[in-house]
Amino acid sequence: MPDQDHKCTCSEQPLVPTIVEVIDIIDRTPDVKSFFVRNVDGNGVPFQVAPGQCGMVSHLPIGEAMISCTWQEEQEYLEFAIKRVGLLTDELHQIEVGQKIGVRGPYGNGFPVDACKGRDMVFIAGGIGLAPLRSFIKYCFKNRADYGKITILYGSRSKADLCFKEELFELWPQETNTEVFVTIDNAQADWDGHVGFVPSYMEEVNPSSQGAIAVVCGPPIMIKFVLQSLEKMGYNDDQVITTLEMRMKCGIGKCGRCNIGSEFICLDGPVYYLKQLRDLPPEW
């Protein structure tokens, strides 16, 4: 909802990027790379990001786009996992370590990490939708005692398209009181895991709605069916959180295009309880 008391910690020139250095690049899938950035003097990060917040990532000669920050490692780096989908991201996928790029932010409200304390957490993601949820998942593990059981349910088109494989298959399953479920859309020879779409797999796994919070992010069609399934499974609208995306240019609620009703997703969102979304026009 419009937040008149939004306390601004941004620069006095919120539309002008800060130049940072790309200190590492990791291929996550054939079309997703993680970019790790740090201040050019090697010292610290350009801004502090809460789980679920975004940064405007700028390859200066080309353009800029709003990207969810998938993780801030203390003052070491910000990590953006970026899928190649268009002009800017095509160019970003060509750059090499050492390249200077621009970032500005942090933008958006982020996940309600405090309000979720003490709850069982169910994270449901599809494709690159795991990138924003990962910031919350890693935050939960970092503050493990603050959260109850953690269930992670993730799917992608194929085995190769699964992001963050090391965490999914090695690190997260080892965490206490944590279950990780992974599925791919279609069977393939080197895959002995679950095959099928996320919503039906979720109904199969059937994580209890008792005291739980479900956090959902993925392609719009997946979100649509997951929300229907969650309702069937007994989740109320105030137990379901999602994070939206719209085209954005400014990131600060000025340029106009990312509105849904009177909300600007870049500023008032991108994270909403389903209960809040029900009050908005159905453009999400």
Binding site: D3, K7, P14, G253
Partner: peptide, 9 residues
């Protein structure tokens, strides 16, 4: 441009 948290410089 001048309210709601951010001032457009």
């Amino acid at each position: 441009f001048l309210t709601r948290g951010y001032e457009d410089s």
